[in-house]
């Protein structure tokens, strides 16, 4: 994964079928990048479903969540509507996995992104990174600890 303290590479990906989201547009906010292998995971409260519930806690720390997988914008739209997500899913679809490669979290063998998290600060610097075992939902605790640590650094 990319090193803590380095600038997060910029990118622009479809967040809806007719809109693109550019990472640098979110400067001034913290950003959580949640790379995950694929839409439509079967478990109750799978990773994105869980983050949909914990979003309000992320927002308290001025953090926006972006989910990223190689699924297409139309697949994301259906998934998002079905699960009532209140945050964008970005389609790293064409060229496939380009952004995941940029962040060193592409799984060449499966042709999917690994399950990985980055927390980026208000200035666009990577402050926390975590690579999860692919079958394991990493939960929200690591992200919240990282955000709290950023709050502490800011106060001191």
């Amino acid at each position: 994964m990319l090193a803590i303290g380095t600038p997060a590479p910029d990118f622009a990906l479809h967040s809806t079928p007719d809109q693109k989201l550019k990472l640098s547009e979110l400067r001034g906010k913290r950003v959580i990048l949640a790379f995950y292998p694929a839409d439509w995971s079967p478990v109750c409260g799978d990773q994105m479903g869980l983050y949909n519930e914990t979003l309000r806690f992320f927002k308290k720390h001025n953090a926006e969540l972006l989910g990223i997988s190689v699924d297409s914008k139309w697949c994301h739209l259906a998934f998002s509507q079905d699960r009532k997500f209140h945050f964008p899913l970005l389609a790293d679809f064409e060229p496939k996995g380009e952004v995941a490669r940029l962040y060193d979290v592409y799984d060449d063998k499966e042709g999917e992104t690994k399950r990985a998290l980055y927390v980026i600060d208000e200035e666009g610097i990577i402050r926390w990174a975590y690579l999860s075992p692919v079958g394991m939902n990493p939960g929200a605790d690591g992200i919240l600890n990282a955000l709290e640590e950023l709050d502490n650094v800011k106060q001191n």
Binding site: V43, C44, G45, D46, Q47, G49, L50, E53, T54, F57, M136, N137, P138, G139, A140, D141, L144
Partner: peptide, 13 residues
């Protein structure tokens, strides 16, 4: 309860 679960790494039910 929800918050303590979230902070304890609950990742689904």
């Amino acid at each position: 309860d929800f918050e303590s679960g979230m902070r304890s790494g609950v990742n689904g039910t």
